[in-house]
Design a protein around this nucleic acid. Sequence first.
DNA 1: CTGTTAGCGCGTTCAT
DNA 2: ATGAACGCGCTAACAG
Lengths: 341, 341
Amino acid sequence: MAKQHQVSPEAKPAGATIYSVAERAGVSIATVSRVLQGVAVVAETTRQKVLRAVDELGYVPLGAARSLAVRHHEAHGLVLPELSGPYYAELLMGFEARAAELAQSVVLVLTNSRTDLAAAVRQLATRVDAIAVFGAAATSHDVLRLLHAKKPVVVIAGEPRDQVEAVTAENLESARELAGHVLDHGRRRALFVGDPDSGPDIRDRYAGFVAAHDDRGLTAAEPVRVALREADGAAFAQELLQGEHEADALMCANDELALSVMTTLQDAGRTVPGDIAVVGWDDVMTSRYVRPGLTTVRQPVHELGALAASRLHDLVSGEPVRTNAQTLPTQLVVRSSCGCP
Amino acid sequence: MAKQHQVSPEAKPAGATIYSVAERAGVSIATVSRVLQGVAVVAETTRQKVLRAVDELGYVPLGAARSLAVRHHEAHGLVLPELSGPYYAELLMGFEARAAELAQSVVLVLTNSRTDLAAAVRQLATRVDAIAVFGAAATSHDVLRLLHAKKPVVVIAGEPRDQVEAVTAENLESARELAGHVLDHGRRRALFVGDPDSGPDIRDRYAGFVAAHDDRGLTAAEPVRVALREADGAAFAQELLQGEHEADALMCANDELALSVMTTLQDAGRTVPGDIAVVGWDDVMTSRYVRPGLTTVRQPVHELGALAASRLHDLVSGEPVRTNAQTLPTQLVVRSSCGCP
DNA sequence: CTGTTAGCGCGTTCAT
DNA sequence: ATGAACGCGCTAACAG
């Protein structure tokens, strides 16, 4: 019994296929495939015939059929919490750019817009060869399932687990340096603002904060556990204004937090860094526009995204999983909110 | 001749398939498909058997095979220039969120990272049911090809063309209102900063600028054609400082431009709005942190992205193409850079 | 409620 | 240099 393709006499109005192109060009589908993939040598005249047929029919190959045949999706998945603020956007840009170089499509999943994260990841796994997830964005159960199914997974800004690679930017040492810088301005009541439990990166930043204190024989205060959003920063600043905390320096877990804290304090008449020093993390655009300029730490975010995409590709290509995290260096950006002139 | 699936005796180590699951559960592949899709009724006991087999094997369905069978990718493509700045990121978030609601994956292409845009779009078309492109991001030739292939296309912040829908935010009237507001502060030498030829949206904003002048019997100056980036704003500000332009008000094509112009001028000792008023467009985060606060126009960017995703879905579902653009309202955000207290 | 089977459109030997 | 035929894994009739 022959395939319907070769039997069916009537033309199908919906979408040209490799069959219709072949028929129109008067060749076999194998030849069409060859000219389109550019793999084997095809006579120039037949080549032209095929190309013309493709053009006339407006033929667009069906990726799913190709994927099924070649047994590869030629796509990478990326799971991010959201895209507000420049951090994730930049990460995504780096990821996309590298994926493009490697001829991989990128399928994006934003977890904040999902009610059922597990389902989203499961669904994603269905259409990509490998997945990069940010931090603790994916539930471990689903990740394990992927591993069981032999889909490469890399964690961005997280920690390596069994069979799960990690790529990250340096946190601990830079945080130690930043906190040390603040302490060396003579500040003695520094507070860390942000929740160390919200992710390995924040945890390491707090660890650096503690280390800087240790280095100087000082004792670090407990972290002020607030979420990393503007609103949370403003709320904390209000607490500060009402005397609920005592501090002459604030090391915020990221810039969004730092900026909102800083401007809230300023609007209430406090001076920065006079009354209180404020530093952040990420070096977002706003940080160089505000006065005083926000002292912060710049991460190679773009490069981090690119690295994740590269590793995904390598893993799909059969490279072994690296057991230790790849860490990219960060850079202290000193402006004046820390007390520097 | 039976399929290899049923013949092959040796287990394939690479990836579980619906066949291996069926075998393990002691049922047919149809039953496996049924419990996984939840379409038909399946006896609870068999259902459990299947689910257990799925779990034990770590079965992840092959999306490509499903797509081929159901003749749908269940994915939308989105073509954006880049993601720096909040505008595109917010658009993407809106798009992704709506797509998720509609159970569609989103495949992202960023054109700024591509050398061969046409190839990227062609490739994208291969794996999605419909594509949304921002403004003039895609070459018309490739778009036409898609239309020929009956793939729905919607343009975001662009103009409808034959068979191509457009979704956009209102520009002309809001620009007229904004420019009018500035003129009503008594400014008489207002300049429009930005290139009207860089896209339909900027063109309309300039048209609004002109209209506001006309409304008052004034003559609008020619636009100062600069690109929409921070660096270009700073360069323009330098020209201004060197007396190459004469102006007491600047209506910038977007906030990034406005912010960089404003701070460059301020750093050189000029006062805003005292010496010169500056207004922007987009209401990015920074605009409410700078002093004076930047007067600008807020667009429903998130909603715009969502609308694009919705329309894509509708078009895929067979709804007819709308010939006139769907326009979302914008909102004037008055702060103090325009001269208001 | 469950199993059989025919495609979905493409890449890919294997002949020629 | 080109064509014929098979299989990739899944859904959807159609039987039973």
